[in-house]
Simulated scan of single mutants.
Amino acid sequence: MPTFGLIAEGVTDHVVLENILIGYFNDPDLVVRQLQPLRDATNELKGFGNWYNVFEYCKSTVFKDAFIQIDYFVIQIDTDCAHEKNYDVPPIHGESTAQFIERIIDKFVRLILDSFGNEFYESHKDKILFAVSVDEIECWLLPLYYTDKTRTAVNNCLHKLNQSLGKLKKETINPSRKDAKIYEKLSRDYCKTKILKASYPHNPSFNYFVERYLVPIDVEMTN
């Protein structure tokens, strides 16, 4: 089984993605390494995490050198700040979610090309998996907590998630202090392959990530 490295905005994104990978590949012992930001054994943040640092990591020599030890890199980024300076990707306007995601992926590709050159990118591009969560990772949790069209939402997802959690009398998420342990609990059902595969098609950016990146790896592994 391949080794995965996670480059994400925050620790909460790490735990959600790790559960998704475990569930998709049906392997509780899957090796998943947290590269950016770092976290300790208690899930406390050891490095600074936000979208800016995802871009910074992807043009660093640390990123380049990590290809020696890791088979696949999952690069996660939300899109709620895509319009901001240094992110500089205009919001969706008359296009599909997939087209919007592809514009963000193009930004990463240009960054990697500018940092390390075409030869490096061409040699490693199949190892890079872009998890672009439109517009935040909480949108990927909605299929676990809704059965109506809300599970397809791409905005105000944290609010929608908290609404459902409140009705279920579960612990809600404090927007100003997100707890990785809560996110691990909320996404734990994604460790179950059947639930994961029934859920991801309902959210467009979640579906893009799985179908574009995880399915080909699975196909290659089974051939």
Rank of each mutant, 00 (worst) to 15 (best):
P28S: 04
Y213D: 04
P216T: 09
K59N: 11
H93P: 07
S176R: 09
D65Q: 12
S96E: 07
F48L: 15
A153W: 06
I128C: 05
I7K: 01
E184D: 15
V210N: 04
V54H: 06
E102S: 13
F130T: 08
V31A: 14
R103W: 07
L6A: 03
D78V: 00
G23P: 04
E44T: 12
H124R: 03
K160C: 03
N155Y: 15
I195P: 06
L214G: 02
W140C: 07
Y208V: 02
E122Y: 02
Y183N: 05
R33I: 08
K169I: 12
L30I: 08
Y87S: 13
R33F: 05
G166D: 12
K181P: 09
I173D: 09
N207R: 10
K85R: 13
A98M: 05
S60E: 08
G49M: 08
F100T: 04
L214R: 02
F120Y: 04
N155I: 13
D78P: 09
T79F: 01
I173V: 15
I101G: 01
K125N: 02
A98H: 11
L168S: 07
G5Y: 02
F55V: 04
I104N: 08
L161C: 07
V134P: 05
T61V: 13
A82G: 06
L142M: 00
I92P: 07
V15K: 02
